[in-house]
Design a protein around this nucleic acid. Structure first.
Length: 549
DNA sequence: CACACGTTGGCTAG
DNA sequence: CTAGCCAACGTGTG
């Protein structure tokens, strides 16, 4: 029998945990491979798993289970490997006689993924394996924005980004999910070897069943892992959404079922104290890639066609939310392009002002655990722990409180906690929003400060949101639900609240008004110092230019 | 150099 | 419910 040219494909899922609009997967199938191995590598050191709460772990497990089920519907399956992709993948290339591999490009410059992909690329080259990479994490490839922006560089304001976006050519069309016919049919395959291999793998490399099946980071001592938990911590959690492409597509359909709601959507006007999310809550699906942003974009277009009210516009509209996402990704890409690995750090981040934050582990811990003594802040933080989600404006309030507003703690610490806890934790978006809220970058009006007391009284005067997530306060009368320390002793007693025992007194020294005023002058000083630094830098630059002339 | 503007502040007066 | 002030940021445009 003549030896056929080998043509075995591997598609490596990382983010992009979906079949629809997956150009890298399609590119692999277009090679008409004899066999296809869709793989996912469980990697404790990856950005997604390194800091991973039980809720995030559960979500990932659900995504992988769903992906496997959807592939099985097409006569294929998912192979879940474990360990460092840099060594695990090459082992399987050899074992499975792979000739080409595909994956969705990570363009954000997230340091772990960037180094990992460079190594895998090199090893594939050495092993004579063809690599097919496609961009589908954003509406346009980030590189396409960079090219279009040209010499003057990418815009660092949303207005500028919107102009750039409007100048882009038509968007790449949404690719449908592959069908059964796109996958090789094992049953009719005449290749004996392939059939035997597939049979031998039948009970191997199955997706994880529970969150505790996920690996811990390989190179970090257990006590230094950011988020340590066990099976017990997985009980009684109520995730805002469950993982997987199937549920993602269903949620998308349901979100857009009311065209007039879509058209009228204005993000700042949605209610953070709603018990059921007042927004679409599609962000976890976009973050893990269960949903394609282009798919959402097109679905929004279709919904708007059916609307009878005039549509809101970016940046507050639903389309606008996708623009923010691309903009944030572009900023991360640009920051990391110049000084690698800086985006979720202060050090070396060209978009971040260095503000001399305090370091108070007790304050940080109180914030993380929802025990600051400010019921609205604590309710938000406890919703995060309970559901893996909180409304965008809640995130604003707690981020402001932790940093420039009250506690004066570094946004890096807040960002790490969000990365561990949020189902939608996203490298680019999380970094951008912490820069914004702490007034370290992109937003500078530090005199606009959220009140941890009054901010949501307008939406929720009776404090039903607080009563749900901070149940030890649930019997307080409306008048004191946002500020229990103002309540007379008799009222507290009647509600069963003992301040300092059943619920903390406010963590800050004095009134929020006074503390935030003081912090504003600290911001002013930090900004002045920054200005002075800039002046020195630019004058030394001018000098250099003169000397070189 | 002046001025408008910036996804989503708080507060008070009317 | 709205307007205007608070004290006053940086960026982009003319």
């Amino acid at each position: 029998m003549p030896k056929a040219t080998k043509n075995n494909a591997m598609h490596w899922f990382r983010r992009g945990l979906r079949l629809h609009d997956n150009p890298a997967l399609v590119a692999t199938l277009e090679q008409s491979p004899t066999q296809v191995y869709p793989v996912y590598v469980l990697d404790g050191d990856s950005y997604e798993v390194f800091r991973c709460s039980p809720l995030r772990a559960t979500f990932l497990v659900e995504c992988l289970q769903d992906l496997d089920a959807r592939l099985r519907d097409l006569g294929s399956r998912l192979y879940v490997l474990e360990g460092d992709p840099v060594t695990t993948l090459p082992e399987k290339w050899k074992e499975w006689d792979i000739s080409h591999i595909s994956w969705e490009t990570d363009e954000t410059g997230e340091p772990y993924a960037t180094a990992r992909d460079e190594t895998v690329l090199q090893k594939a080259h050495d092993a004579n394996i063809r690599v097919l990479q496609e961009c589908s994490e954003t509406l346009y490839p980030l590189n396409a924005y960079v090219k279009k922006a040209g010499k003057k560089g990418v815009p660092a304001t949303m207005t500028g980004f919107q102009k750039l976006f409007d100048s882009m050519p038509p968007m790449h069309k949404v690719l449908p999910a592959p069908t059964k016919e796109d996958f090789p049919d094992i049953k009719t395959s005449k290749n004996e070897n392939t059939n035997t291999t597939m049979k031998n793998l039948k009970d191997k490399y199955l997706p994880p069943k529970k969150p505790t099946d996920l690996p811990w980071p390989r190179n970090t001592p257990r006590d230094q892992v950011e988020c340590v938990w066990n099976a017990n911590d997985c009980k009684n959690l109520t995730p805002v959404v469950h993982g997987g492409e199937t549920l993602a597509l269903k949620a998308l359909k349901e979100s857009l079922a009311k065209p007039n709601w879509v058209a009228a959507f204005e993000k700042p006007k949605t209610d953070p104290t709603s018990i059921k999310p007042a927004t679409t809550a599609l962000s976890p699906y976009l973050s893990w890639g269960c949903l394609s942003p282009r798919q959402v974009w097109v679905a929004l277009d279709e919904a708007l066609e059916k609307a009878t009210v005039s549509p809101s516009k970016p940046p507050v509209s639903l389309h606008g939310q996708l623009l923010w996402r691309d903009f944030n990704n572009l900023m991360a890409h640009d920051a990391n392009n110049e000084t690698p690995a800086c985006w979720n750090h202060i050090e070396g981040n060209k978009y971040c002002r260095n503000i001399p934050w305090d370091d108070d582990p007790k304050a940080l811990e109180a914030w993380k655990t929802g025990r600051t003594g400010f019921p609205w802040i604590d309710a938000c933080m406890r919703q995060l722990a309970q559901e893996g989600w909180m409304h965008h404006l809640g995130r604003h309030a707690v981020a402001c409180f932790l940093t420039r507003g009250d506690l004066w703690q570094s946004w890096e610490e807040g960002a790490k906690h969000f990365e561990a806890q949020l189902l939608d934790a996203d490298y680019a978006l999380n970094g951008f929003n912490w820069l914004w809220l702490s007034c370290s970058g992109f937003f500078y009006q530090y005199f606009r400060c959220y009140s941890p007391v009054g901010f949501q009284k307008k939406n929720d005067p009776s404090g039903k949101y607080i009563r749900k997530f901070v149940p030890e306060l649930k019997n307080l009368p409306d008048k004191y639900i946002y500020e229990p320390w103002e309540a007379p002793a008799s009222v507290l007693e009647k509600a069963g609240v003992k301040l300092g025992e059943t619920y903390p007194r406010p963590i800050i020294d004095g009134d929020h008004k006074d503390v935030s005023k003081d912090n504003m002058s600290r911001m002013k000083a930090a900004y002045d110092a920054h200005k002075a630094e800039q002046a020195v830098a630019s004058s030394s630059k001018t000098k250099k230019q003169r000397t070189s002339e």
